[in-house]
Nucleic acid binder design. Structure first.
Length: 947
RNA sequence: GGGCGAUUGGCGCAGCGGGAGCGCAGGGCCCUUACAAGGCCAAGGUCACUGGUUCAAAUCCAGUAUCGCCCACCA
């Protein structure tokens, strides 16, 4: 073994070996499990009968690994690896998302370099280009997951545009269409004029941007006058409205005031002149208007504001759409036609000013909706779109979380979920893109036939005329919402599914067609519901909530999922913290504030990055990423490496590990085994409870501070000794503890642990050929936990530390020998110290060590009171008596102060009456120890003074 | 406008009802035959503030301040 751990040298070969060993595949397979379940039932304690399944949040096919992925996938891999070792058949389904807008943008950018737009090459050719793009770039992020060591089932990689996935999406749409849950409507929706597509409400992000509030006066039309006659005079009455978007006035159809607003009461029902457009529009009264904002009068533009749209509906107002799909003013905008919305604003304002309609402009920062893909300001735009009626779907999805069928970790996210679900609004699912799942609705223009179909048709079944398919595609999130069951072969595996397998042939040539014959209905039966879903908080609504809704809906007809707890897509939702940089700013490629996980792995190794990230996963919602943690983690990997190197170097030629666990009588051995036992319990429970930070810290502390700093050091004297039996005991314990520590560390640090474990001289069964599939240590089955042993080692440590600090205090080089006398108060302690004198001498570099009940403090000595002992270090001619006196008296004061605190507490009647007995006992014992220590210190001070 | 977090040693963070911990940085001593990506020793905090609950509060409750996220139709 090399002197330092070199991740680069081992990561790739290890990963290849895992793949070659087929360890990432579910074992037994879903089909075999289905048989086993039939034979044995599925609820037995046997881990083999309890599969553990995670479906990866599919990264965008355009994506490359960022810190969120690194964090999220480490979490999932930890869960998968731990459960695989427990013996459960694990399956981590992997794949990518076709990412409609993102991919389309990429391909359009590529075309643009050739001077082309998608319209130049046409829909079909464009989609071909998208597939090409995917073939070229789509595996990047998967390869990055491999570099991280993620143990996904790579043999069955999914893509949300796979032919079988397309069939699943179509099944969903057709079902909801036929149930009336999907419907078409004309509404003012969120429109991105750059992507030229509709977006759902939650795809719009809000940014505070500087803006202006324009106050404009609309002349009130005198009763009985004609449009053309309205002249602005000094007597003209006005209504002043306030708007942040003056250009939209071109599409105004009314001015609204609050019904009870006395300022305008008499004007309701009258008309005002819409300046610039010279149109009469009514003054209406509507509760929506806030009389306290601005002037209390609101212009109504139904085609360009979602709220105005609703007001317009209530009052039967016309809807004037003044923008085209790129937000350029149309003919409806009169002389402004052809201007962009920005240019139109400038000209409108200038004209208003010129004509005297502009009252004032005030600064008014406000919230602007922007496209979550390209940050272009959203244009509320009247158009015909497809929607999903969400309320009926949301209701059961709320209940399963209330009932605990689905739990969130941390739990507080459940409230966020409830709040959104209870106020859910219909979901706009149509997108005016080409790359995506095309809406399977067919129209006959000859008759009125319209239908959503699972199979394409070319002629109308009613009148035989040619039909046309809807031009739009579905929101990418519409397809990702079915991920947990679509990747388990639904609907083809479901009794309810009856789709043919023609999709493979019908699909585009670029599509990767996975042979359906390798799949059976076992997947859905055995692996659904999945166990955990780990994800970032920002897609709680976009994705997580919708998976719960669609899962509950589409599993309802599946006979093997009769109970509601079998219909949920997963039982545990882990919402991991958002990764921010050290300054607390969002990591962003474009802002240059991001950190690239690949660089991190380069510097710290995959294990270093993984462990460093896990250390930082606590209950917080924002994680300020700390690269120092990765440095410590890399060093930790190196520490593990070198500890292993030490163990291997110190084994006798004929060493053979004992079967099972070592039965050493040596105190240090019993101590480390006891500590290991406790660690095992905590790590097992910690991973099961998703406490990754705590688990990692615990592993670190055990391995470094206990195993390396103390146990190995304590074992050295035996290892170097001539007593074969003692040497053997120490070696057995070292190997055993290292073996089990590696098992416990493996989920977080898979590479270094696997590499070392392969080198351990332990006997392995055929099923334990690699650490990745080795048995997880079982806590509680052994009897190692021994608190008395732990207490004794603490005493030993106290003695050694006391000697070391004395040495440091007097600047004594390790080469200077020390003569040490220890005064003990009881025979048990005496025995312990005598037995351990070899270790004490070794670890403190003392060269003579005397222990007894009647030891007298030598005149020229430094003394320490610790662990109930008085430790004297002979320092003839070196010790500075005055300094020792000062130190002892400082120490005495400190102990006295501590003691006073405890005595006060113990004399408090309330405490004695109400505190738990074990607490009182603990405090009494502490007070006793402090009292003894104080007495000793005072005795020494008295001696010092008399000397 | 609502909701949710955070505030602990120089920095980054744990702990979340019983005597304040970790990593990094800084200090001293050590190239001790596993590891200098290391070892040993020491130093450093009235746990944001104000009240309250409790025998006992960093930890629970209320409020205040600062920072940050999310949701929301105030033009």
């Amino acid at each position: 073994m090399s002197k330092a751990y070199d991740p680069k040298a081992i990561e790739k070969p290890i990963f290849d070996a895992w793949q070659k060993g087929d360890f990432f595949a579910q074992n037994p397979t879903a089909a075999e499990l289905a048989d086993l379940h039939e034979a044995n039932g599925s609820d037995a304690d046997d881990p083999v009968l309890n599969p553990y399944v995670i479906t990866i949040p599919p990264p965008n096919v355009t994506g490359s690994l960022h810190m969120g992925h690194a964090l999220n996938n480490t979490i999932q891999d930890v869960l998968i690896r731990k459960n695989r070792m427990v013996g459960r058949p694990t399956r981590w389904v992997v794949g990518t998302d076709h990412a409609g807008i993102a991919t389309q943008n990429k391909v359009e950018q590529k075309l643009a370099k050739e001077g082309l737009t998608r319209f130049d090459i046409g829909r079909e050719a464009f989609i071909d280009k998208c597939w090409e793009w995917r073939a070229e770039h789509g595996s990047q992020i998967i390869n990055q997951l491999k570099a991280m060591g993620c143990s996904c089932d790579y043999d069955r990689e999914w893509f949300t545009m796979d032919p079988s996935y397309q069939r699943a999406v179509r099944e969903v749409f057709v079902d909801w269409f036929n149930q009336g849950l999907v419907y078409r409507g004309t509404r003012t929706i969120n429109w991105c004029p750059r992507c030229t597509t509709a977006l759902s409400d939650i795809e719009v992000e809000h940014e505070d941007r500087p803006g202006k509030l324009y106050h404009i006066r609309y002349p009130v039309v005198p009763e009985g006058s004609n449009a053309a006659d309205v002249a602005l005079t000094e007597d003209t009455q006005y209504i002043v409205i306030a708007t942040t978007r003056p250009e939209t006035m071109l599409g105004d159809v009314a001015v609204a005031v609050h019904p009870s607003d006395s300022r305008y009461g008499e004007l309701v029902g009258r008309s005002v002149l819409l300046p610039l457009m010279n149109r009469f529009i009514p003054v209406i009264a509507d509760e929506y208007v806030d009389p306290d904002f601005g002037t209390g009068a609101l212009k109504i533009t139904p085609a360009h504001d979602a709220n105005d749209f609703e007001v317009g509906e209530r009052h039967n107002l016309p809807q004037i759409n003044i923008f085209d799909k790129e937000a350029v003013v149309t003919e409806e905008g009169g002389v402004y036609a052809g201007l962009s919305r920005e240019a139109a604003r400038e000209k409108v304002v200038a004209d208003l000013q010129k004509d005297g309609y502009l009252v004032e402009i005030e600064e008014h920062p406000h919230n602007v909706g922007v496209c979550y893909r390209c940050s272009t300001a959203i244009e509320p735009w009247l158009s015909e779109q497809w929607f999903v009626d969400m309320k009926p779907l949301a209701k059961p999805a709320i209940e399963v979380v209330r009932d605990g069928q689905v739990s969130f970790h941390p739990k507080r996210w459940e409230n966020v979920y409830f709040h959104w679900m209870e106020n859910i609004r219909d979901w706009c699912i149509s997108r005016q893109l080409w790359w995506g799942h095309r809406i399977p609705v067919f129209y006959c223009d000859s008759c009125d036939w319209v239908a959503a179909l699972k199979e394409d048709v070319t002629t109308c079944p009613k009148c035989a005329a040619p039909v046309r398919q809807d031009e739009d595609v579905l929101d990418t999130w519409f397809s990702s919402q079915i991920w947990p069951f679509a990747v388990l072969d639904w609907p083809s595996s479901s009794p309810a599914g009856n789709l043919g397998d023609s999709a493979c042939n019908a699909s585009n040539e670029g599509a990767i067609c996975i042979p359906q014959s390798s799949r059976t209905d076992a997947e859905l039966q055995v692996n659904y519901p999945t166990n955990a879903l780990s994800t970032a908080p920002d897609i709680l609504f976009l994705w997580v909530a919708r998976m719960v809704m669609s899962g509950l809906y589409f599993m309802k007809d599946n006979p093997s999922k009769d109970a509601v707890e079998k219909r949920v897509p997963f039982h545990d939702v882990i919402i991991h913290p958002t990764v921010f940089n050290k300054e607390g700013r969002r990591m962003s490629k474009s802002l240059g504030t991001g950190v690239d996980p690949l660089d991190l792995m380069e510097h710290y190794g995959a294990d270093g990055m993984r462990f460093g990230l896990m250390l930082q996963v606590t209950g917080v919602q924002d994680m300020k990423f700390d690269e120092d943690k990765l440095l410590s983690s890399r060093n930790f990997a190196n520490k593990i490496w070198n500890a292993a190197r030490f163990v291997l170097m110190n084994l006798d030629e004929d060493f053979a590990a004992v079967e099972g666990s070592p039965q050493s009588k040596a105190l240090a051995d019993r101590w480390i085994l006891s500590r290991l036992e406790g660690l095992c319990e905590r790590v097992t429970a910690g991973i099961d409870n998703f406490e990754f930070g705590e688990v990692s810290r615990d592993l670190y502390g055990f391995f470094w501070s206990e195993f390396c700093d103390w146990y190995i050091e304590l074992a050295k004297s035996r290892l170097n000794g001539t007593n074969k039996e003692e040497r053997e005991e120490a070696q057995q314990t070292l190997v055993y503890v290292l073996d089990n520590a590696l098992r416990l560390l493996h989920p977080v640090m898979p590479y270094v642990t696997e590499e070392i474990w392969q080198k351990l001289p332990i006997s392995r069964s055929a099923s334990e050929s690699s650490l990745i599939v080795a048995q997880w240590p079982k806590a509680g089955l052994r009897t190692y936990r021994d608190l008395e042993v732990e207490r004794r080692i603490e005493m030993l440590k106290a003695v050694i530390t006391a000697l070391r600090s004395t040495r440091a205090r007097y600047g004594l080089s390790p080469k200077t020998g020390l003569s040490v006398s220890v005064k003990v108060g009881n025979s048990a302690d005496k025995l312990l110290l005598k037995d351990s004198s070899e270790q004490i001498v070794a670890l403190s570099k003392a060269d003579s060590f005397e222990v007894g009940a009647t030891v007298v403090k030598p005149a020229q000595s430094a003394s320490v009171v610790a662990a109930g002992l008085e430790i004297y270090v002979h320092l003839e001619g070196i010790v500075d008596i005055e300094a020792e006196k000062a130190r002892l008296s400082k120490e005495r004061d400190k102990v006295a102060k501590d003691l006073a605190k405890f005595e006060k507490k113990l004399s408090n009647e309330g405490f004695l009456a109400k505190a738990a007995p074990e607490i009182i006992e603990k405090d009494r014992s502490k007070a006793r120890d402090l009292r003894e220590a104080l007495a000793k210190l005072e005795g020494q001070l008295a001696e010092q003074n008399s000397a």
